[in-house]
Nucleic acid binder design. Structure first.
Length: 581
RNA sequence: GGGGUCGUAGUUCAGCUGGUUAGAACGCAUGCCUGUCACGCAUGAGGUCGCGAGUUCGAGUCUCGUCGGCCCCGCCA
């Protein structure tokens, strides 16, 4: 290939505009598409900023080069920018084109398995295998540009607020609480393991003990659990901790940070965010992360059901179960088939079935044997609009609420407008819950969470009634952050560990250093971690976190691009003193 | 760990109750074409029907297992 002196690039393909007309430019990019019309050829050249039409006509000296150019070939093209006689309004650069005088083929490309433009029509599996092609898609490039901007904006904001970016170890200890750890064997101390951090929790608290007062880090966390559309084994958190403050001050900082971030996509976020106690969220929405875009709430119809003369519900009530319902506006027209599907969905979601009631053309109907007059009276009493569909579930209170909550989410899809942002602080979580499997108390948040001071006397008598100073930030039904005030008193911290039934030896082994630190002047402090990937997912309107992570894993924790995880040599295992079972 | 769903040409898909030569579109190759922008026209190449067993005279189609993608429950903040 002949060496060619190229002009310095002044602009990206996608940025060439009418102001460039008459100028001679060099652009670099990938061949997005080619249209050969005999003696005239058009090449759509693509770089990260967009497309530019290149014209190769009779003035081009080396038409033989065209034989070597195909989709995804990398070119440098020099030529003169001219105004188009017939502009293409679909392209930002569509009023101009570049008449090629020199082309250098910088890299050939085999026929690609798919083209970036068409990523939406190929399987995610194929896109993973050739992620570098997938990422060439201009929409993907846009996502990652936004990701970069959000990162920078967050850093600038937190810096201005006096937060210091301090790195914490990636090789640390496994934790007895929480998710499964990714372990890293120590070569020097055979049989001992590091673990990748599930979060920098203890380190950021130690940074408070160290007196930095305000810390942040945009950092990777690792959790070895099963994946979902919004869960990856490694993910990024905006991790924040501050001393000498209460949660109102933290909320204000986070709210302004979030507003700052959402401005990047033109969202006008109104402050402050709504707040709702956990109990209310569960009762009204059957979820600790309610999607407030869905306009209806869960109602209790246990009392009303007493007038329906239903053996089924009477038996349920006799067992102390509750009848929870959803009144879905404008849904009385649901077909029998749709209602059966809802019932099936309810069963799949772990319930026993879903009862419906509605007003049809020929009177009130229900899947339950209830007199039409009784249903009519019920609609009247609860002021239910006649075009509404009523769905009912019967179960123990907590189960009934959870199922109703899942149904609410399932049926509320049409209300989930991606351009609407409903932020919510969920507060007042119980400090503990009872772990049925292990028959012991477990932390709702994590073991460093502080109880409300007024509840401390209840620790021994009614531990499950103790409320934590803990909070989740929820956006459109997705948990995008969570945090708490921390225990900074060693006596209280020891007490909580003991209540969790952690063995003294284990406490000493895993948290000894931490308890020691609390002896030497730990300031009151609190913090939060925001899910950076989830935030980005919602900001870009994507349905999966994988669309804003450059090299994600599949739902079975594989990387289809690199093939990891993979086997390692016997030699490596020997060096670590590890035998595979 | 469990449930659902998908896997056929490079890609996206069709393929009836099992039947002999597995189709389409796009892409690709070759030729023609000077204003296309989903260019057009013509011709052509291209298949381990994910993999492995089984049932059968015969399997893309049925059964079992297995691998992989996605969604959900459990798990995980």
């Amino acid at each position: 290939m002949a060496e060619r002196k190229l002009l310095k690039r002044e602009t990206y393909c996608g940025a060439v505009r009418e102001e460039h007309v008459g100028r001679t430019l060099t652009v670099y990019g990938w061949v997005n598409n080619m249209r050969e019309l005999g003696g005239l050829t058009f090449i759509d050249l693509r770089d990260r900023e967009g497309l530019l039409q290149i014209v190769v006509n009779e003035t081009f000296a080396r038409p033989d080069q065209l034989k070597c150019i195909g989709k995804e070939t990398v070119l440098a093209v020099s030529g003169r920018v001219v105004a188009r006689a017939k502009p293409n309004s679909d392209l930002p650069s569509g009023r101009v084109e570049l008449i090629a005088s020199d082309i250098e083929i910088l890299a050939a490309s085999e026929v690609p398995p798919f083209v970036p433009e068409n990523r939406g029509n190929v399987s995610e599996e194929l896109r993973f295998r050739h992620r570098y092609i997938d990422l060439r898609n201009l929409g993907m490039q846009k996502n990652f540009k936004l990701r970069s901007k959000v990162n920078l904006r967050a850093r600038n904001f937190l810096d201005k607020e006096g937060f210091l970016d301090i790195e914490t170890p990636m090789l640390t200890n496994a934790t007895p609480e929480g998710a499964r750890d990714y372990l890293v064997p120590s070569r020097i101390y055979k049989g001992k393991m590091f673990a990748l951090p599930q979060s920098p929790q203890q380190f950021k608290q130690l940074l408070m003990v160290a007196g930095f007062e305000r810390y942040y880090q945009i950092t990777r966390c690792f959790r070895d659990e099963d994946l979902r559309a919004d869960r990856q084994p490694e993910f990024t958190q905006i991790d924040i901790e501050m001393s000498f403050a209460e949660h109102d001050e933290l909320f204000s900082i986070i709210e302004r940070l979030v507003r700052e971030i959402f401005t990047l996509r033109g969202h006008d976020v109104t402050l402050p965010f709504r707040r709702m106690p956990y109990k209310e969220a569960m009762e009204k929405y059957g979820s600790d992360k309610p999607d407030l875009r869905i306009p209806y709430q869960i109602q209790d119809f246990t009392d009303e059901s007493g007038t329906w003369n239903s053996d089924l519900l009477n038996a349920a009530r006799a067992k102390g179960e509750r009848i929870k319902g959803l009144v879905i506006p404008d849904a009385a027209g649901f077909s029998r088939k749709q209602l059966d599907e809802i019932n099936e969905t309810g069963k799949k979601l772990g319930g026993r079935g879903v009862i419906w009631m509605k007003k049809a053309d020929d009177g009130f109907k229900s899947s339950l044997k209830v007199a039409p007059e009784a249903i009519a009276a019920f609609f009247e009493k609860r002021r239910i609009a006649p075009d509404s569909l009523v769905l009912l579930v019967a179960d123990a209170e907590a189960q009934a609420l959870l199922l109703a909550g899942k149904l609410r989410e399932f049926l509320g899809k049409k209300f989930q407008d991606k351009n609407r942002m409903e932020f919510l602080w969920v507060t007042d979580f119980p400090l503990f819950f009872f772990n049925e499997e292990e028959k012991r108390l477990d932390s709702n948040h994590h073991p460093f969470t502080a109880p409300r001071p007024e509840d401390i006397p209840l620790l021994d008598s009614r531990p499950l009634a103790v409320m934590a100073i803990a909070y989740d930030l929820v956006l459109n039904g997705v948990e995008i952050g969570g945090g708490s005030k921390r225990i900074h008193d060693i006596t209280l911290q020891k007490k909580v560990f003991q209540m969790l039934n952690l063995a003294d030896r284990e406490i000493e082994e895993k948290f000894g250093f931490f308890l020691t630190a609390l002896k030497f002047g730990a300031p009151p402090h609190l913090g939060i971690a925001l899910g950076f990937d989830r935030l980005l997912m919602l900001l870009t309107g994507e349905d999966s976190i994988r669309e804003i992570i450059a090299f994600p894993k599949t739902t079975s924790s594989l990387c289809l691009l690199t093939g990891s995880p993979s086997v390692v040599s016997q030699r490596q295992l020997d060096e670590l003193g590890i035998a595979i079972k």
